[in-house]
Design a protein around this nucleic acid. Structure first.
Lengths: 314, 314
DNA sequence: ATAACTTTCGCAAACGTTTGCGAAACGGTT
DNA sequence: AACCGTTTCGCAAACGTTTGCGAAAGTTAT
């Protein structure tokens, strides 16, 4: 329509110095008039650069992951990347299908959280051969030579233990999650190491909210003065039990948790917790990804700070 | 490597009847040996079919949207579509950028929830010209000739009103959300219409959780016997106020809400609520999308059923 | 052996871009 | 007027697929 060649149009649209200002203006005007939008597929095919990240998560519908996703999406948009979000449903088979999808879409990188069932991570190492960066977050494989971003599990559990020590508690029930997860192991170990040995401590593993509620009822029956919840999932169950028993917090029983922060603020008094922000973790994961993209072959495990947020529950 | 042409390979991989079984097998073996993955960009460019949906939401980090997303993602995967998730941050400008992204990526369809600020929906109607189906959900434009899926706002509010009527309440505070949203208008109108006129009812609009808490404190001060919460956001604030005031539910004060169901189950007694499931809405939105893709030019507003889930709060 | 099918495959164009290279047009200097 | 240097643009190949059409090879019937 302008009597110009395709290449000229392409260059004009991209503000190439070879093209005169007059021409650029004519092109841009027509482009907006027709509201032309470049075809991402063609661009990516031609340049073999995708500007697409994959993000695999057990489920989107989760206090922690949703804020992580929100954070990564936000950064991606700012940096002109798109995000393809995939749920594994905690199923290693679907996880593999999702990885395949990532490859087919020629993603520039993958953020992934292992499903709690995953044992074999060969499908992930394949990405290393293809030079596609993979950032593991939250639930990460227990090995070296990969990029991981995690909340500071050891530090968090240590802070909790110290807080309980300082408050001179006598009888603590510590509720942890699934025992096979590295996140559980780390928190459990650090807690055990730091809790005052004079405190009578009962350790339990709850697989889900109802189990946590059961354990909390048991704790109440045994006159525990403190319950520690390793995660929001557990906290919810514990609070249910405490409300049922009509106990006052913190006078009848104290509660402390490791949490994203949303759930603790739902109650009054608010629950004291050590913060593990999905939002911050997302930012960290993204910057780690950008470092990889920039060529840093430096594999490392990064952690975000965690700090105590005082409610009135202990 | 097999002495075959590209076209034969292509056909063999797609199980085309023209290709002999022997050849197909040889091709497939080599393909898995090399672990070949087709380039989605090339396919989409060639076929101009994208198998990609866009989903625009104010924020991923939200009780309702996260389950909606989880649901749509699940269905998409089952149907061999990918999902590109975009957050608008409730900002119409970003919303427009996201729409542009959808177009550039040649999505096959868009699921979108308006930001509460959006007035001008021209950018959306542009999609209609391009014959790209758009399914609005939750916060939908107030016009005809578009596809919308919504929770049954009128029904939900009616159920709530009737429940309050039956319980013979005397003094109700009804807390609604932002007054400009269609969702608010519909619920308010239906509630007003159905609530027993003998009941003293105070209507308030809370823009966020803290405001809801303020209003709830006011309600308590004025000895209200019932508080209705239009949304989870409001419920959270109300519960905070009630816990602060150390009131017993439902003896001192009754609570009823419209909710996704997660928050009400956090408390004891659990809050009675009318369910508006993001998960179900996602399923409905997806099937509506599939209908559009199949060529149904039939624009309509669909709603999901809602039903009362009894807790012990009223 | 020839003809007439059937099976099996290859050619080449097309999708919408990017980009190295070369060429036309233009301006200025002798 | 011839030459040279810039500025401004076009040609064509390439990215990895799909697909209509035609052709070679194989099979069967005469």
């Amino acid at each position: 329509m302008l009597g110009l060649s395709i290449s000229t149009i392409s260059r004009a649209l991209k503000n190439h110095p070879d093209i005169s200002e007059k021409t650029k203006q004519r092109v841009n005007e027509l482009a907006t008039a027709l509201d032309y939008e470049p075809n991402t597929n063609a661009i990516q095919l031609r340049t073999s650069k995708s500007n697409l990240f994959g993000l695999i998560v057990p489920t989107v519908s989760n206090f922690f992951y949703d804020s992580f996703i929100a954070s990564v999406e936000e950064e991606s948009r700012k940096n002109n990347y798109s995000l393809m979000i995939l749920q594994s449903g905690d199923d290693p088979v679907i996880e593999m299908q999702n990885l395949k999808l990532c490859r087919q879409n020629r993603v520039s990188g993958v953020f992934t959280c292992l499903s709690s069932q995953t044992i074999n991570i060969d499908s992930f190492t394949k990405f290393k051969d293809l030079e596609i960066p993979v950032i593991f977050f939250d639930l990460v494989p227990d090995m070296q030579g990969i990029n991981k971003v995690c909340v500071a599990d050891v530090l968090s559990a240590t802070i909790v233990a110290n807080t309980i020590n300082i408050k001179k508690k006598k009888k603590v029930f510590a509720l942890f999650g699934k025992p096979n997860l590295s996140i559980t192991k780390k928190r459990l170990e650090a807690f055990k190491y730091n809790i005052d040995k004079k405190i009578v401590t009962t350790y339990l593993h709850a697989n889900n909210t109802p189990e946590a509620e059961q354990f909390a009822m048991e704790a109440i029956k045994q006159n525990a003065d403190t319950i520690f919840c390793m995660s929001d999932e557990i906290l919810v169950g514990v609070m249910k039990a405490i409300q049922k028993a009509q106990l006052q917090i913190p006078t009848d029983i104290a509660v402390i948790a490791i949490s994203n922060g949303f759930i603790p603020k739902l109650y009054y008094p608010e629950i004291t917790y050590v913060e593990t922000s999905g939002y911050k973790l997302g930012k960290l994961a993204f910057s780690s990804m950008m470092a990889c993209m920039a060529g840093s072959a430096f594999m490392q495990e990064l952690t975000i700070e965690s700090m105590l947020v005082e409610g009135g529950s202990i």
